[in-house]
Design a protein around this nucleic acid. Structure first.
Lengths: 130, 130, 130, 130
DNA sequence: GTGGTCTAGACCACC
DNA sequence: GTGGTCTAGACCACG
């Protein structure tokens, strides 16, 4: 499992780990039943404080995405894929909603907003094909 | 000038003040050259510590949106309107971009994204008319 | 007597008045024995709080550059011209000194400093002839 | 890192800290990536309130000279050295300019100004060698 | 009256 | 341990 941590980002490191594990599951890089790296190992890999990894794993456990298996480590649960998918779409919907609200409050009309969306989609498409 | 502060929000109070002052300028509630409420007065209005207002005003000064007039108070600068407008649109564009990126990474295709946008715009429109 | 006040400058208004009166004396726009405008009149002219003018005149009195004449107003003293001249050169010498010290602390060598001085003198000469 | 604060100076303490940190970076006493003293530690060292240090560090953050690493402390950014250098020379040039302008307005001719500069440079050289 | 600075002490999230 | 935010209350210079 390869994660990339940015210690300068405004998102807490433990949250970055959580998100990337979820993403790895959603994109089927991590499959259900699979063992994930131990706390110590991942901490060393990411050059991060072990406590930070513990916190991330604990949150993933609370969300029933990971489960501990005595003596073995932690595995991806059966339900993980579904959870990650729905969470992800819900999050995107929520953030999209917030942006649109802010645009509306700023006095941008619907046409302008749609233009913005289209130009950003086009830009994104272009960047990807580089 | 009427500001509404939510001390329980996850966004700092001083930042809420900054944004709302910018919004008041962008929406022409505050015009250039106009005196804004004094630190003490606004602090009293918002039931907030004067230092918190000081901090907000100071940031607005650093962004050249406010300027202090010794012994008189603080006024809205000439450039304030432009600054607020461009800052606001840039911020919206940036956040929109981030959401679209995340959607793309999550495997949502363009059609689905557009559907999401449209459904949220419709929902927003509906909410406003309540 | 024509003074130009900049309320946005970082120098206090009363100090701006003091300096400009001194300058007017040093450049012989104001001659010894001459009556200067009354507090009220100058305050109106400069669109400034009368207290501010009072403060400036008071400082000029303390420095023996102005003197009050019962029932008439304030006049420029005999010694004013000398005072203003020496003060002015001393001030320039002091500030020059401070800048050179700072340059030295910043590790600029003498040659570089002399270059800076010459380039600024040239620039200044150029600006004046515009 | 050794800073020397003068609480009686007319320049604010937080500004003194800002300048000395910049100077420490410009003179390579602090290198990029390095952790600077924590807010509490520096506050104790300087016998100053932590909030005052916070304010200084925050300004340095706004100028992109420092960056905070959650839970670790603050580090010197990559760009810090450049920023400090250019800022410093620009500041000196500006102040030199102002002095020369004032000298010109006071009727001092170029020869006299150059004499002043040379005599102050000589004086400074002399003082340093004490 | 105004803003600018500083102190003292508190609580929080993060590592 | 770290920085980030906030409160409470003080003193100063300026107009």
């Amino acid at each position: 499992m390869f994660l990339r941590i940015n210690p300068a980002a405004d998102i807490p490191i433990y949250e970055q780990i959580v998100r990337q594990v979820k993403f790895a599951i959603a994109s089927k890089t991590l499959m259900k039943g699979e063992l994930i790296p131990s706390v110590r190992e991942l901490a060393k890999q990411l050059a991060v404080n072990p406590n930070t990894v513990v916190r991330a794993y604990r949150q993933l456990q609370d969300e029933e995405i990971l489960a501990s298996r005595r003596g073995m480590g932690m595995i991806v649960t059966e339900r993980a894929l579904d959870h990650c998918h729905t969470q992800r779409v819900d999050m995107i919907r929520l953030r999209l909603r917030q942006v649109l609200e802010e645009a509306e409050q700023s006095g941008l009309d619907q046409a302008t907003v749609r233009e913005l969306v289209e130009s950003e989609i086009a830009q994104l498409k272009h960047d990807i094909h580089l």
